[in-house]
């Protein structure tokens, strides 16, 4: 089984802080990590490989330093890695990003299943996974929390909903986006880390993936950011004190209108 897992390198949100004076993001010392949701996709891809055989290819679009995310993916069990990187991709919105990744996947050619995290922690759009499947015109199942069965032809999966979950059967090839509940990602292994150190991820440019120039980057993106600003920070309010009973009574009174 040929498995492709799409990942994104994002700033570690644990490190993201707001400068209280200038009200801007402090980025000094912010580490880049694999998008936390993609870690579940990588783990699931490796588990499918362990179950069914085959290989896992990690794919990312990003700046040259995104190669580090690919090395980490290899240390976690991916077999091959491809970095799609070109200045022409700068300014891509989710439309252009999913187009670029789908063009890279077309170049890879042979695949049975594509896995993505349900969304990235920096953009939070959840649009790129479904976007890729739309560009490739293959079936998708989003928010997958369990793969019940998988064979060369079919997968039976549980798709998380607001109320519970759906059980969906999909033919392969298909694209799945996964949620945290699907697995607990393993720790990297030393042998994997050593393999990652010497691995040479493939580097593809816009020309390599034979992408239409007009569909790339800022020019290929229907949406444009016109303003970025820091939201008003929520301020801490009143600290209540007194005996437990007093505090409970006072709070009940304060919240009366909200709960009735």
């Amino acid at each position: 089984m040929n498995i492709i897992v799409c990942i994104k390198q994002v700033p570690n949100t644990t490190d993201v802080r707001i400068d209280p004076v200038t009200n801007t993001l402090i980025r000094d010392g912010v580490e880049s990590v694999i998008n936390p949701f993609d870690a579940y996709a990588i783990e699931e891809a490796v588990r499918i490989k362990e179950r069914c055989g085959g290989k896992v290819t990690a794919l990312t679009m990003g700046p040259p330093q995104a190669e580090n995310a690919l090395r980490e993916a290899i240390s976690l069990g991916c077999d091959e890695a491809i970095l799609v990187s070109d200045r022409k991709f700068a300014g891509s919105d989710t439309w252009a990003t999913s187009y670029t990744l789908s063009a890279a996947i077309r170049k890879i050619g042979d695949f049975d299943i594509i896995l993505c995290g349900k969304q990235a922690s920096d953009g939070d759009t959840a649009q790129v996974g479904p976007g890729i499947s739309a560009h490739l015109d293959i079936p998708q199942v989003t928010y997958v929390k369990k793969i019940e069965e998988i064979s060369d032809k079919l997968a039976k999966v549980e798709r998380m909903t607001e109320e519970g979950y759906d059980i969906v059967q999909t033919p392969l090839p298909c694209l799945l986006t996964v949620v945290k509940e699907i697995n607990t990602p393993r720790m990297p292994s030393l042998k994997g880390m050593m393999r990652a150190k010497s691995a040479k991820p493939l580097k593809w440019t816009a020309d390599d993936i034979e992408a239409a120039p007009a569909a790339l980057g800022l020019d290929g993106s229907p949406t444009r950011v016109v303003k970025i600003f820091t939201p008003q920070q929520r301020k801490g309010g009143e600290m209540m004190s007194g005996s437990t009973e007093d505090v409970a009574r006072e709070l009940t009174e304060l919240l009366k209108d909200m709960v009735i």
Partner: peptide, 20 residues
């Protein structure tokens, strides 16, 4: 199990016996 999967049990064992 985690230590095993991470190859840490093999750090002091020669490579010819599967260690590091």
């Amino acid at each position: 199990k985690i230590l095993a999967d991470s190859d840490l049990f093999g750090v002091y064992i020669p490579e010819k016996y599967g260690g590091l």
